[in-house]
Design a binder for these strands. Structure first.
Lengths: 182, 182
DNA sequence: CGCAACATGTAAGCGGTTACATGATTAC
DNA sequence: GTAATCATGTAACCGCTTACATGTTGCG
């Protein structure tokens, strides 16, 4: 499933511009699917070219036209076909974990910094999620609530795991870490 | 951090061939960093070209030469520099969660299938992790143990979350799911 | 005065995936 | 016989990231 298909899915919730979709990628989708303007705008153009969405231009003063996209019947069919994949992937790519694999080559200060930064990022996510909960969540489709809860649970678990196990990495007796010279 | 750097890190544990490294990507790294032969072999060639690893050819009968790589002093320095990044990323890309966002467009059977397949994949990971625990884990550096525990905790939590919350997606009263015709 | 938000796009480049190519040995 | 394991690679392709390009409005 690529950016095109996710955009199509977002448009089932109502018409939107590329700018609007970007905000959705940055908010409710941010913890599991990244996309920038460089992917979104070309994706919408391709969807329009293939007749899966229709575009309405809305003129504005001093700004480029707002281009609002609406999913078509063909688009809905295409989306439903994409959703038939029984094994959608769930991939993690973690430089963080790769770094921790080699923590015995790092100083305790370096390790602490990396862990603190990761904890901060997870706290930021949790605060973002809390904002969602504050607003009209009861209108959300069940899937969206499931996905939000999933993200919350994962972030909390990661935070707890790091807090409970950071001692493994820094409280060992080897204050003198191995260096390149070693 | 790219495949090259991770290969370099793996080689701090002792010399290895591309084939060996692939096995490591498929085992202890599988839950957070994917790499196929098409990335690994070119990566090792590039590392050798840049003097970060050295290559020994070992002749074999009826098979291509086994090419065993060893990290160099320059390689160690390069790796340590890479490990200085205080904010290594941790990215999730989940077609699974994207699919669940649109579960209100799917039949209950489809949703169940997707959930079952995801549960199976997590169970497979947990069995893989259990195998690691059975073998000489006490020799592992602390970082590797931390990362294994991290993976176990995440997989267990995901499994529990899905089992506890699948009802959100399929037990609702809307047995008649929305279709493209709707 | 400067920054954030609004709003859309292109183009180069990069990194990784997939498919292809080869071929012996061993175990079932 | 047939599949898996051992063992290395190339090349085309694809999708996404990054940097660039442009310009207004409104807030502090």
């Amino acid at each position: 499933m690529d950016v095109k298909t996710v955009c199509l899915g977002m448009l089932t919730d109502g018409e939107a511009s590329g700018y609007d979709l970007k905000k959705e990628f940055e908010s409710s989708f941010s913890h599991f699917f990244a996309a920038g303007y460089g992917s979104i705008y070309p994706a919408l153009n391709a969807l329009a070219r293939d007749g899966l969405v229709e575009c309405r231009h809305i003129a504005q003063e001093g700004k480029p036209d707002r281009k609002v996209y609406e999913i078509t019947e063909a688009g809905r069919e295409h989306l439903l076909a994409a959703l038939e994949n029984p094994c959608p992937s769930h991939k993690v790519r973690s430089e963080f974990l790769a770094t921790m694999c080699f923590s015995h080559l790092m100083s305790h200060e370096q390790i602490e910094t990396v862990l603190e930064n990761r904890l901060t990022e997870m706290t930021n996510y949790l605060e973002l999620f809390k904002e969602f909960e504050a607003s009209r969540m009861e209108d959300w489709p069940p899937g969206a609530r499931f996905v939000l809860g999933f993200g919350q649970t994962m972030m909390k678990t990661m935070r707890e795991y790091i807090e409970a196990n950071r001692g493994m990495l820094v409280e060992e007796t080897n204050t003198e870490h191995q260096t390149a010279i070693g």
